[in-house]
Write a protein that binds this DNA or RNA. Sequence first.
DNA 1: TTTTTTCTACTGGTTTTCTGGTAGAACACA
DNA 2: TGTGTTCTACCAGAAAACCAGTAGAAAAAA
Lengths: 204, 204
Amino acid sequence: MVEDHPVVVEGLRRILAQEMPHAALLEFNTGETFLQHLREAQHLVTLALLDITLPDTNGVELCQKAKNLSPDTCVLGFSNHNDRALIMQMLSSGASGYLLKNVGAPELMQCVREALNGQMAFSDEVKKIIARPSAAHVKAVPPLTKREKQILRMIADGKTSADIAAELLVSPFTIETHRRNLMQKFDVNNAAALIRLAAQLQLI
Amino acid sequence: MVEDHPVVVEGLRRILAQEMPHAALLEFNTGETFLQHLREAQHLVTLALLDITLPDTNGVELCQKAKNLSPDTCVLGFSNHNDRALIMQMLSSGASGYLLKNVGAPELMQCVREALNGQMAFSDEVKKIIARPSAAHVKAVPPLTKREKQILRMIADGKTSADIAAELLVSPFTIETHRRNLMQKFDVNNAAALIRLAAQLQLI
DNA sequence: TTTTTTCTACTGGTTTTCTGGTAGAACACA
DNA sequence: TGTGTTCTACCAGAAAACCAGTAGAAAAAA
């Protein structure tokens, strides 16, 4: 667990000790100590419970870095934040699930087991939040023109600029320009990052 | 609407005529006629209700093609299929929502209005299906090694092979090899398509 | 312990993307 | 009718990705 609230640490410790007495439980109170542990890889971390607000970082960033260092580690967000966008960000960052801190012991253990089992795991309240379609996240999307959306999808399809130009009956130069404008709007510098963002924003 | 069941067509026609008397309602009973209409673009299509099983194609493919031709058209899946994976595929293909055919008129119109409003729209039953985390979709994922998952995420972050090599302290050649292997496993031929697929499969 | 898989590394050549310019035509809208 | 936006188009050079091989070392699995 990566958690800086002593009370929560204590609670988790008790529950886990009782329910999974054989599991090795590691406790970190900052993101950096956790990442350091992953780097050294003394012990594999099979499952991590990440608090969202930590003294030195935030859950989303930490989750990304952790998954980069250790792709097989299963990450669960564990926080009081019930903001849909945040939860979605965690999932996009590779988290396998999300729990609100108000969960009871049975629900917590249920989620842990699901996650260890390769499933997505959410506490009941989070399920409701996810089911509720968001109108908010659309706001953050940079406005794309019709043509840009169209070309974005074709890039995601794996088509080259030449392919797209042929399909749309315009010059390849034109497509290159659109490509550039798209990357500029999303503030990225290659197609991979562009498509990742677009996928996260549900544009494709 | 793109729908080949006369009874459903009739039902939709009545409901829509009553609830949105000023809207122009176009009816297609095959995917191809619909796509043809989009190509000719005589009239903009603001919202499309797509049946999933059609004589000449399936909803997912049709949705993709339709969004390629007309990115601003809002697509709603409309079918009896309540398979979570299928619904997710539709959403990944650009659909703005999904309704089961058992919806009543008020729910239908509610979803249509939400969709026109730029929101995601789901019938109540679909919301439940989406909230329920799936274990199934994991099966279709090609098995990636730890290292590959790690590098995949870094590619999605927009990092170049050189960047990644520097970060992981290996040769850029190595990263290039991993890149190639990843693309081969996913059967795509560039990073954009790779990342799109990975995003759809929730690997990043 | 043998076998298989994964991770590593290289050559060399081709294709594509990315960067940083510029700029005219068409369109929408005020 | 002017103004801003979108779509189009071009050049040229640098950087990166892609392709088709091969292959040794390390680690995991049989």
